[in-house]
Structure formats: structure tokens, C-alpha cells
């Protein structure tokens, strides 16, 4: 019984309630950093760490948090983890820190994280909250990887991961569709992806 519900909480975040494609939360940081696969990976790692940390702490103290101050408490906990991510990225992966720029500290206001704290971790036991955090993070990472893969290949005509060039497309390599790395391209692509995923029945409207 317990393992099945752990599994259920874990898998639901990946497809059924994928944070980007189904809940459509956290669009601002997602669209802003999905210009390259590297950035998307970095952002996903940051979000995973923060979400896991905040879900664990909040779930562990959920019974003693006074209801009237719960949102400030959540924010303090989330901000602490975000600052840790910020310092660690700055110290150990400076190039990623540079390219994520302002969006790294802005994980604080990413509504996926506060949303999971309020809607899940503050009401559910520790193990389930961990499963929820992992599932949602993987869903976020998958969605972000799909978007950033398309944006990078269409927008620059090539794909590189960790600075190593993987491939360059024949025609697009010389004439990339630069709109896809720009903000309008992000919105276009996001809309098209949502429409496609719905048409295919991968995600269902409520």
C-alpha cells in the first residue's frame, strides 16, 4: 500500500500533472532559461535541489507551523535553499551561474515550489513529499529539456552540451531561425507544444 502511493506521488508529477505542460506553472523562469540545453539542465538541477529541500523541511515541520504564518515560513525556507544553490553555483560552476544570471535567485518566486509547499508538503507525510518533489522536478526537467532542445537546435542550428558541440544541422546551421532563442519564439514553441501534446492525448484538459 505504502509503496504504491509513493510510486503514485512520484509518477504523477512527470506526466499527469507535469508542472509546465499541465499545471502551466513557473513559465517565466522556464521560458527565460530554455535558450540552451545547458541552461535548462542547470536550472532543473537548481529547482530540484530547492524543491526537494523545501518539501522535506516543510513536510517535517508541517504539524507545528502556525497556520497564520505559514506562507512567510515557506518563503524563508525556500529562500534559504535558493541562496545555497546560488552560492554553490557561483563557487563551483561559474559559467552556468553567469548564464542563468538573475533567474537563479528568482527560483524563490517560482510558483511551482511555493505551490508544492502549500498544496502538498504541508499536508502530506515526509516520504510522500519527497516522492512529490522528485516527480515534479523530473517533470520540470523533461519539459524544460524538450523546449530547450527545440529552441537550441532550431534557433542556432546546432546543439552543444557542456561546451562540446554534438551536431550541426545542414541548412539551419548556416541560417538559424534566431527567433526561437528569443522570447517570442519561446512563447510560440510553448503554445505549439501544448497544442500538440493535447492533440496526442499525452496531457488531458481537466
Amino acid at each position: 500500500m505504502k509503496t504504491t502511493s509513493f510510486w503514485k506521488e512520484f509518477t504523477k508529477g512527470i506526466v499527469i500533472s507535469n508542472p509546465l505542460f499541465v499545471l502551466v506553472l513557473g513559465l517565466c523562469p522556464a521560458l527565460a532559461v530554455s535558450t540552451s540545453v545547458d541552461n535548462a539542465l542547470g536550472m532543473s538541477i537548481g529547482v530540484t535541489f530547492v524543491l526537494l529541500g523545501s518539501n522535506i523541511i516543510i513536510s517535517a515541520i508541517r504539524k507545528i507551523i502556525p497556520n497564520m504564518v505559514r506562507i512567510p515560513i515557506f518563503i524563508v525556507i525556500i529562500a534559504t535553499f535558493v541562496t545555497i544553490v546560488n552560492l554553490v553555483f557561483h563557487a563551483y560552476v561559474p559559467s552556468l551561474y553567469e548564464s542563468l544570471g538573475i533567474y537563479l535567485p528568482l527560483i524563490v518566486v517560482n510558483c511551482i515550489i511555493l505551490g508544492r509547499a502549500e498544496a502538498f508538503a504541508s499536508k502530506n507525510p515526509l516520504l510522500h513529499s519527497i516522492a512529490d518533489a522528485l516527480g515534479i522536478s523530473i517533470g520540470f526537467m523533461l519539459a524544460l529539456l524538450i523546449i530547450s532542445f527545440l529552441r537550441e537546435t532550431l534557433g542556432t542550428g546546432s546543439l552543444s552540451i557542456f561546451g562540446a558541440r554534438l551536431f550541426t544541422l545542414p541548412i539551419l546551421g548556416e541560417h538559424p531561425m534566431a527567433i526561437f532563442v528569443l522570447p517570442p519564439g519561446a512563447f510560440l514553441l510553448m503554445g505549439l507544444l501544448l497544442a500538440l501534446l493535447r492533440r496526442l492525448g499525452v496531457i488531458k484538459s481537466e
Partner: peptide, 14 residues
């Protein structure tokens, strides 16, 4: 008190 304690712990960790 609760908020104060949480903030102090956050500061210590940071």
C-alpha cells in the same frame, strides 16, 4: 517565536 526560530536557523545555515 516560531518565525524567529526558523529565521535564525536559516541564517545559521546560510
Amino acid at each position: 517565536i516560531f518565525v524567529t526560530v526558523v529565521v535564525f536557523m536559516a541564517v545559521a545555515l546560510l
